[in-house]
């Protein structure tokens, strides 16, 4: 079994390839993404843990000509697990649902997730009805599959096996406040 990927390395690869996709980071992907992609095409799920997947769904439905990429966390997704059938049911073709699986609640001190490593979110996404769902364990595999992830018909679910990020929203509290991000993205998409 390979070492888990560094989330920052995963995000860098995605940042270099995402083009004009709208991105929805949450929790421990947020500090790194702010540095890698400081643009107004990202809106961070902050202050309502668990909401990234459905915020992404709304954006995907409202902007069908753009790719929407959700950077979800395993702890976050467990808070709105019902979003899997909701997303699969409406089946947005432009939605990519990435899950950064580190098996812990990192921000609050790395407490173990319910079920831990055994939890298979790929099976859950497939069972919910996502068009495709698979796991990626290495950066090489991510680089190889990313072009298809960014172009194939969705909704796609990708479970990324990662370690802990260097920074969390508790250790790095910066960034544009959520209401301002919302306003900027709203202005950009409705211009």
């Amino acid at each position: 079994m390979s070492e888990p990927m560094k989330p920052e390395d995963v995000l860098k690869i995605i940042a270099d390839a995402r083009g004009t996709a709208i991105c929805v980071p949450t929790m421990t992907t947020a500090p790194a993404w702010r540095t890698l992609a400081p643009d107004d095409l990202s809106v961070y799920c902050q202050g309502f843990m668990g909401g990234a997947s459905t915020l992404g769904l709304g954006l995907a439905l409202g902007a069908p000509d753009r790719r929407v990429i959700v950077f979800d966390g395993d702890g976050s997704l467990c808070m709105q697990l019902g979003s899997l059938p909701t997303i699969a049911g409406v089946a947005p073709r432009n939605l990519v649902h990435l899950l950064f699986k580190n098996n812990v609640y990192h921000t609050s001190g790395a407490q173990g997730m319910p079920g831990g490593e055994r939890v298979d979110f790929v099976m859950m996404a497939k069972g919910a009805g996502y068009r495709n769902a698979f796991a990626i364990h290495t950066l090489d595999e991510l680089k190889k599959r990313l072009p298809a992830i960014l172009s194939d018909e969705g909704p796609l679910f990708v479970e990324l096996h990662t370690g802990l990020a260097d920074r969390t929203p508790m250790t790095d509290r910066g960034g544009v406040p959520f209401p301002q991000q919302v306003e900027k993205l709203h202005a950009r998409l409705t211009a």
């Binding site: 909401g51 990234a52 439905l61 709203h186 998409l189």
Partner: peptide, 15 residues
């Protein structure tokens, strides 16, 4: 909770 997130995403895009 999902309804709130989806409604927000739709509003952001002008729907």
């Amino acid at each position: 909770d999902e309804a709130n997130g989806i409604a927000a995403g739709l509003w952001i895009t002008g729907e």
